[in-house]
Write a protein that binds this DNA or RNA. Structure first.
Lengths: 224, 224
DNA sequence: GAAATGAATTATGAATACAAAACAGAAAAA
DNA sequence: TTTTTCTGTTTTGTATTCATAATTCATTTC
């Protein structure tokens, strides 16, 4: 049986705007011009406005009544707050994953880990990120908690654009890889408590790098 | 200077639908009739549909393409997942609160605690809940993390209707009060780690009661 | 020259109109 | 009787329209 995935215009629009924000085509703090995007997407304002409502509750844009939608700025404060919350969520995912994960899933994650390591050794940052993300996703899935997964995903959207702009120092990269090595050990031992701790720490390290990425919109004059 | 709070129709509508769900006027699994609600609220379909998009990303309703909106069912599984995530979030709030809370805020929480205790002794469940919630909110505020607060609030919406239907056993109620006593001690000692642990435990206790509340929509035939 | 005022323009918020899909019920076929 | 097909109705998704609030920019005033 083939699953028909019914797509809606507002869903498509939301996804495209999300990408545009992450890729820097829509800049933080700037207005999102409804009319322009409607023409670009070839849709009317109704579904586009619905998409903006969705993005607003995801925290990607902010809606100012009668003044339109703006791309939210990633302040340092907000980034710290978000990483703190994501740390708690990923920590929980680690704890739960160790309780429920199957042998096969652990093996899959190990495989992903080795692929990631290969890209690390070759200093191929994009593919490295790719596999890195897939490992974290796999742990999320293993936690058998959809609410957790969705909540995490929603926060993750907001900070994706940081990742697009991150430049890793050798020192941090080494640390990140070490974290991942330890994570694999925890999974093999089913040591949920320690995996949770490592993941929370891991997120704290990520914050440091992210904060230095240059997409932070602090101390810019805010014309609101 | 008076702050003008600009309200939008879709925001109002979202709030009203939320309340209707929590108060049982819109039943889980049932369709949300656009036309009817439009007439009831005296608005057109456009803002109402926007409200539904917001509620959908909050997890209050689910949108089936071309088949309208339904109130999501609270399955036991989902309730467990949600409490698990909220436990992690409240745990974090406890840890952070101990780092940042002021003397005055601790005093306020103590005052709320004594008011809550008064209602506990008189077995006045509604006011007890009221103060209980206010204490948890106050800790959230003290954590100085808006992202955390909003994420928690969003999850809290979904399970509010359980709280409306909870009947407390004496045993659980006693336990809950004991938890709260311990929480106050932690705040006074600024013992974040322990407060975090207590809050996570506290949420686990809440789950047990909630699961027995009778608003769980398991094993009902699903006509989808 | 800078700030303030006001009309013209533009964008947003909400209502209405139209197209397409889902639903319901009657009639026909197995 | 049960199943299927067809048709009319209802409901949803999207486009369009209209009213109102915000913005812009030229003009006036200090």
């Amino acid at each position: 049986m083939i699953k028909i995935q019914q797509s809606t215009l507002y869903g498509e629009a939301a996804a495209r705007i999300r990408d545009m924000i992450n890729e820097g085509q829509l800049l933080p703090g700037t207005r999102i011009p409804e009319k322009k995007l409607c023409e670009q997407f070839g849709i009317s304002r109704t579904p586009l406005r619905e998409a903006l409502k969705v993005l607003a509750s995801e925290g990607m844009v902010e809606l100012l009544p009668n003044r339109g939608a703006r791309v939210v700025r990633l302040t340092r404060q907000m980034l710290e707050e978000t990483y703190s919350v994501m740390g708690a969520l990923e920590g929980l995912s680690g704890e739960l994953a160790c309780r429920y994960i199957s042998e096969a899933e652990v093996a899959d994650i190990q495989a992903l880990h080795y692929q990631m390591m290969a890209h690390y050794k070759r200093r191929e940052i994009r593919p490295y990120f790719e596999f890195n993300q897939r490992i974290h996703d796999a742990i999320m899935l293993a936690s058998r908690n959809e609410v957790l997964r969705e909540t995490h995903a929603s926060l993750n959207y907001r900070i994706q654009r940081v990742r697009y702009a991150t430049n890793m120092t050798d020192e941090y990269w080494k640390q990140a890889v070490a974290d991942h090595e330890a994570m694999i050990d925890c999974l093999l031992d089913r040591d949920g408590e320690r995996l949770g701790t490592i993941l929370r720490e891991h997120l704290r390290h990520k914050l440091v790098v992210a904060a230095a990425s240059g997409v932070i919109d602090d101390d810019r004059t805010d014309p609101c």
